[in-house]
Simulated assay, not measured.
Amino acid sequence: MEQGNIKPNLHIYNIVADALCEDGNLYAAINLLNEIKQKGILPDIVTYSSLNDDLCKLGWWEKVKTLFFEMVNLNIYLNVHTFTILIDGLCKERNVEHAKEVMRHMIEKGVEPDVIIYNAIIDGYCLRGQLERARRIFDFMIDKCIEPSIISYSILINGYCLFEVGRTDDAKRIYVEMLSAGPKPDICTHATLLDGYFKCGFVEEAILLFNKLEIKREDTNTVRIDLRAHTLDLWRG
Rank of each mutant, 00 (worst) to 15 (best):
I76C: 13
I150S: 11
I207Q: 13
D170S: 10
E35N: 05
I155C: 01
L90K: 01
T192I: 14
E101T: 10
N73E: 14
N95D: 06
D186E: 02
N221E: 15
H230I: 14
M103L: 07
L67W: 03
G159I: 07
E112M: 15
P183R: 01
D186L: 02
D233H: 13
E132S: 11
I142H: 03
I41H: 09
R104A: 11
K37R: 09
E164Q: 12
I187S: 13
G89T: 08
R228H: 11
R167D: 05
N75V: 05
E108W: 09
D123L: 06
R136T: 12
I12T: 13
N52G: 04
E164D: 12
D53N: 13
R133I: 03
K57D: 07
K109S: 10
D186G: 10
N211S: 11
A99S: 11
T66E: 15
F210V: 02
A99F: 09
S49G: 12
R136D: 15
C200H: 04
P185C: 08
P8R: 05
I117C: 10
D53Y: 10
R104E: 14
L90Y: 15
D143I: 07
L20R: 00
L209N: 03
G110C: 08
T82M: 15
F163L: 11
N75Q: 13
K65G: 04
G196K: 07
H11F: 12
F202H: 11
D226K: 14
I117L: 10
R167E: 12
L127M: 12
I107F: 02
R128D: 06
T222R: 14
I116M: 08
I187A: 14
T82C: 15
E205A: 06
N211Q: 12
D44H: 00
I142K: 13
D233V: 09
K199R: 15
